[in-house]
């Protein structure tokens, strides 16, 4: 469902994404972790077509996001960490706008909106302008509008920002439920507990490379640590940092990016 094939993105001398390859099958809940400036957001931008890759291909539901952008975007939903919303519209007007942009039939739009509004507890805010809503409520509006057209691939960056524990639970449950129904979820987060709790597989990006990928148990094995995901994460990113340091010290030629075996 998501195919990232040898993706490379360079900003001048800096390689933000370095030969990254990954396949996320239909219905999988995939979480991507990584330290700051690891290349997670750039990877998401390449996947959603906001940026052109220097090399490689990104495909969504079999459609190349560069050569068949409309087909790919029709099947995709993307919620950034600080989503854009039309401030003077009400949540209902925004939901309607999004549905119409995805060319949804009026009846289907109304039914889907009704269900999502109930699920995300948005009824009290439907008639209020978005600029008066709290950050958490806006985040719920953004997530509900992205789920409205029933996307095949759902990409979300830091979904829990501003959400109270109750609504964070609702979001997690909804995304998990949808993924079990066949929606592929690609989630980027710094909250390791979220990834640990709901992801089928977890990928760790560090210095533009996918340094590890697998289930929680597979990551524990790869890192040689046990217990919490945090230990595996710290061990894997430290290993990679030490490896890079050594490589720089001895100026050895850069080896090809190790591609850990994919689960499933």
């Amino acid at each position: 469902m998501i195919e990232l094939l040898h993706l490379v993105k360079k900003f001048g001398d800096l390689t933000a994404v370095n030969d990254l390859s990954l396949v996320v099958p239909k219905g999988e809940f995939f979480a991507v972790l990584g330290p700051n400036a690891a290349g997670k957001t750039t990877t998401i931008k390449l996947l959603t077509g906001l940026m052109k890759p220097t090399a490689g291909t990104a495909r969504v539901a079999g459609f190349d996001v560069q050569t068949q952008p409309l087909e790919a975007r029709r099947r995709l939903a993307y919620v950034p960490d600080f989503p854009f919303l039309y401030e003077k519209l009400t949540p209902w007007e925004f939901l309607r706008f999004t549905g119409q942009m995805f060319r949804m039939e009026e009846k289907r739009l109304a039914e889907a909106a009704k269900e999502l509004v109930a699920r995300f507890n948005l009824e009290p805010y439907l008639r209020k302008p978005i600029d008066g809503l709290s950050h958490g409520t806006r985040q719920r509006v953004a997530i509900a509008s992205a789920l409205l057209h029933d996307p095949e691939v759902f990409v979300i960056d830091e979904p829990m920002v501003g959400l109270d524990p109750h609504h964070a639970r609702v979001v997690k449950d909804t995304l998990k439920e949808r993924s079990q129904q066949g929606m592929t979820v690609f989630l980027s987060t710094h909250q390791l507990s979220v990834a640990e709790e709901i992801a089928d597989r977890i990928g760790i990006i560090h210095q533009g490379k996918l340094v590890a990928v697998g289930t929680r148990d597979q990551l524990r094995q790869q890192s040689g640590s046990d217990g919490l995901l945090e230990n595996s994460f710290l061990a894997l990113t430290r290993q990679e940092a030490n490896f890079s340091e050594e490589r720089a010290k001895f100026k050895t030629p850069e080896p090809a990016a190790p591609l850990p075996p994919h689960g499933r």
Binding site: K88, R103, P151
Partner: peptide
């Protein structure tokens, strides 16, 4: 899963954006 464009008979994206902009103004 994804919306079928063939069944849609509402306004096009440019008109939708114009409408949103006018409502906001």
């Amino acid at each position: 899963m994804a919306a079928k464009p063939g069944n849609y008979d509402g306004p096009g994206p440019l008109r939708l954006l114009t409408q949103v902009s006018l409502v906001q103004a």
